[in-house]
Computed example of a mutant assay.
Amino acid sequence: MRSVSEEPVPLHEEFIYCCGAATHVLKCGPWKDLSKDESKNLPRLLFMIIPGNPGLAGYYRTFIQALYCGLNQQYPVWVVSHAGHCKPPSGMEMIEDTDIKELEDVFGLNGQVEHKLNFLKKNVSKDIKLVLIAHSIGCYITLEMMKRASELQVH
């Protein structure tokens, strides 16, 4: 008989374009899109990790799995890489090939703040409460996010 801690922890990995830059996202929990699913069964709380430098999502893999298990697998735990701080999979470029330039400098500090806000806007419903966990420069990014978007429901 396997104990709960030996069960595989569900982990979803994706590479997306956010603000035109390649972005690595790791998600613990079965919830792949919290912006479109209005199900009453989904939790209305998201734990989101903002990395330090380098902003590699993979560095936090073990941490988010442990946190997810520590929360009795009831709340999604996501980590979002910094814009461009990932090696995109084959066939994906570092910068999206588009005529629209979303940010002047998505790779700079201001751009990283806007990158995280844009990610939330496109992927998380406004009624979902957030617990933001950050490391190093991620703390600065988090504070700036809260200043710029006072509508965020941060707990």
Rank of each mutant, 00 (worst) to 15 (best):
36 K>R: 09
14 E>I: 04
48 M>P: 02
151 E>R: 13
47 F>K: 05
134 A>M: 10
104 E>Q: 15
31 W>T: 00
57 A>R: 08
118 N>M: 11
148 R>K: 13
58 G>C: 05
17 Y>K: 07
59 Y>H: 10
53 N>P: 03
122 K>E: 10
59 Y>C: 04
89 P>M: 10
24 H>P: 03
6 E>S: 12
63 F>D: 02
9 V>G: 00
45 L>G: 05
76 P>Y: 00
81 S>E: 02
30 P>R: 04
91 G>Y: 11
135 H>Y: 07
124 V>R: 12
8 P>H: 04
110 N>I: 15
64 I>F: 01
23 T>P: 00
148 R>D: 06
44 R>T: 08
71 L>D: 08
96 E>F: 08
58 G>F: 12
56 L>M: 07
29 G>H: 01
11 L>C: 09
133 I>W: 00
96 E>M: 14
61 R>E: 14
115 H>L: 09
13 E>L: 02
4 V>F: 01
154 V>G: 06
72 N>W: 10
142 T>I: 10
142 T>Q: 12
32 K>Q: 01
83 A>G: 09
19 C>T: 02
99 D>P: 15
113 V>P: 02
35 S>K: 09
152 L>A: 12
36 K>M: 03
17 Y>E: 00
133 I>N: 06
85 H>P: 03
41 N>P: 03
1 M>G: 13
45 L>M: 08
55 G>S: 05
54 P>L: 07
110 N>L: 13
2 R>I: 05
79 V>S: 02
131 V>P: 08
141 I>N: 08
140 Y>P: 12
124 V>A: 09
4 V>W: 00
117 L>H: 06
111 G>C: 12
26 L>I: 00
154 V>I: 11
112 Q>G: 12
8 P>L: 07
31 W>Q: 01
102 E>Q: 09
13 E>G: 01
147 K>H: 13
